[in-house]
């Protein structure tokens, strides 16, 4: 019967068997997706393989604190030529702590600011202002980080030095560290500004996609505008906020140039018990440490140590993407199509 229709009209009728073209496209896309995954897995394994001597020589102490990390790196760099005498000793905690501190603070700050400014842009700003803000914000996402670093060094660091750092502060820590404005604070402030545009762009888009009739439904119940936005729109876009935060975290973890320029680039672990002073202390996260170590890569144990830094960064990014995905799954329970 169906072949009859086919001959009579010339229009292909859906056949029982799978369409061969469709099948080929599926295979192709599948192959593409798996090769990307394979590539990422290969990269992680390769990095781990290269980094292994550094991890193996230190054991779990690699992640711990102890001694001056910059001095240790210098020793590794000055290792004797004989592979048997390579020096690997490293206690990387100050660098890890600095990475956690600067990324977490700036992502938290940026998420907070991004959510509120997106709400303002979408729901409260007058029309012409909205039209102006959005493209400007999106453009800011494209500013190269070295430019931010330059502004940081020339403007922000001296400003912090003269505004926040008192003589008592300077003398109180003079025996370990010099305070000159290059600091956690400078890094966090500029990093926040750097990751804000992409977060705002993503959150604004998702806020706009919230169906108007949800908000109307809330307003019609006598809920005020701000509360309706917060309890319906912002609630509905929580998965998008998480996605934006994960993207921003990846960006923050990987930022090297700007942070190398403004954080003082010293392997020092800022001490939260120092109170406000803590924000004024210099430090250096992992990514700028790789950048700083660039000229030493030909020294085998030093190169391997840098691979170890890289491995930690890759694994953290994978970890954050995965937890972001898991959080989005649990938040998505009540959204459209959820069961």
């Amino acid at each position: 019967m169906s072949s009859l229709t086919y001959e009579a009209t010339g229009i292909p009728v859906e056949s029982e068997e799978a369409d061969p073209v469709n099948r080929r496209v599926e295979l192709l896309l599948g192959a593409l997706a798996s090769s990307v995954l394979l590539f990422i897995a290969g990269m992680i394994l390769f990095t781990l393989f290269k980094a292994w001597p550094s991890f193996a020589a230190n054991g779990l102490a690699w992640f711990g604190a102890g001694g001056n990390v910059d001095a240790q790196l210098t020793d590794i760099f000055n290792s004797p030529a004989d592979p048997a005498d390579y020096i690997y000793k490293l206690r990387a905690w100050p660098l890890i702590w600095s990475t956690i501190l600067i990324s977490a603070l700036s992502v938290l700050l940026a998420t907070f600011i991004a959510v509120f400014s997106s709400i303002f842009i979408v729901h409260f700003a007058p029309g012409p202002l909205q039209k102006l803000i959005e493209p400007v914000v999106k453009y800011l996402a494209a500013v190269p980080s070295v430019v931010y670093g330059l502004i940081g060094i020339l403007v922000l660091v001296p400003w912090i030095n003269s505004t926040f750092i008192t003589e008592e502060m300077r003398s109180s820590v003079a025996y370990v560290i010099q305070l000159d404005g290059s600091s956690v604070m400078a890094g966090v402030m500029i990093l926040t500004v750097m990751i804000l545009p992409i977060m705002i762009a993503l959150i604004v888009d998702s806020l706009r996609a919230v169906p108007l009739n949800w908000r109307e439904g809330a307003l019609a119940l006598g809920v005020n505008k701000w509360r309706a936005v917060r309890t319906v729109s912002v609630r509905a876009i929580r998965p998008a906020i998480v996605a934006a935060a994960v993207l921003a975290t990846a960006r923050a973890l990987g930022e090297a140039i700007m942070l190398a320029m403004v954080t003082g680039s010293i392997g020092f672990a800022p001490n939260p018990f120092d109170g406000f002073l803590f924000f004024m202390e210099p430090s250096r996260p992992l990514a700028p440490s790789i950048l700083d170590g660039e000229e030493g890569l030909s020294v085998v144990p030093f190169g391997e140590t840098m691979y170890a830094f890289g491995f930690i960064l890759i694994v953290s990014c994978v970890f954050f993407s995965f937890s972001g995905w898991a959080i989005r799954q649990s938040l998505g329970r009540y959204s459209i199509g959820a069961r």
């Binding site: 439904g217 309890t231 609630r235």
Partner: peptide, 23 residues
């Protein structure tokens, strides 16, 4: 009540309780 049903992306209970909670 709207012509098109517009339940919020929340649980059934939270939908009905929404107005009382938020106003």
């Amino acid at each position: 009540l709207f012509q098109q049903p517009n339940p919020f992306p929340m649980s059934i209970f939270d939908n009905v309780a929404y107005g009382l909670r938020e106003r």
